[in-house]
Amino acid sequence: MRRIRSEERTAYLAILPVGLLLACFVYYPAISTFLMGLTDANPRVQGLEGSAHFIGLRNYGQMLGSGEFWASVWRTVLIVLMVLPLELAIGLAAAMILNEQFRGRAVLRTIAIVPWMLPPLVNGFTWSWILNGDYGALNGLLYQLHLVTTYHHWLASPSAQLFWVAVAQVWTRFPFAMVVLLAALQSIPQDVVEAARVDGARPAQIFRSVTFPMLLPAFTVALAVEFIVTFQIFDVIWSLTAGGAAGQVINPFTKAVMILNYEVVFRNLDLGLGSALAYLILVLSMGVGYVFVRMLYERGA
């Protein structure tokens, strides 16, 4: 009995620091932000000392009824729709390359992981320099390959901006899909593949009816994770197209939901509305991610 008591005391002591931090810096502010989303808190209106009023779900109603919100959801969905297929295709191709035995495999694996290790903010910066309309490397490369005759401003149009944001995001994230799919590829028992080969199946057939079905769970995981990650994209846009540093106006054409959230809270100081928006984004990203997984699993089963 004494032994158990002391074990319990030890356990509480061991989790106490983490517990305190989570209670003070995560749970308390998360709940209190949610509650603020039910008020009209805005220091610009009420002053710093003024008090906000409880207005129920009106902030959610206002957000869901605003064209600005749906425009930013649409932009985000466009980015997601470009990123997910590209990223998973490149990730799968890279995983299949690295699943072969060849000289330089470890080196290639290391090289391919680098983009994922770098700060996404720096990746956005890197791509903005590559895409630079006056001196950029992409222009130089295409010119020297005689594919263009004049330098081109790649980020000139709104749709081009979304496209290049997606490319930079794919570059940043594809190694994640690659790592997940490579692990799954390596766990496929070789004798199954060998048996199919002995039976005379062609490589494409083996991939379609043996390899891919066994990859499906890993594929689903990568898809769901990357949906959530891409839906909440912020850093890459910030350094590639947002242009909002030092108090300048944020470029509206790539205002994804997280950028909109930043603007509502830290530029407009609309704290109540911003809190509601934060929880809307949470529900949208997690909810859709969850539905994704369910759908794919049910189809796979």
Binding site: V26, P29, M258, L271, I281
Partner: peptide, 19 residues
């Protein structure tokens, strides 16, 4: 605790800033 693993920081950002 596990509930918090996927929780992004920005759902608590505003109150956190005041705190």
């Amino acid at each position: 605790m596990l509930l918090l693993v996927p929780l992004p920081v920005w759902v608590s950002l505003i109150a956190l800033f005041q705190l």
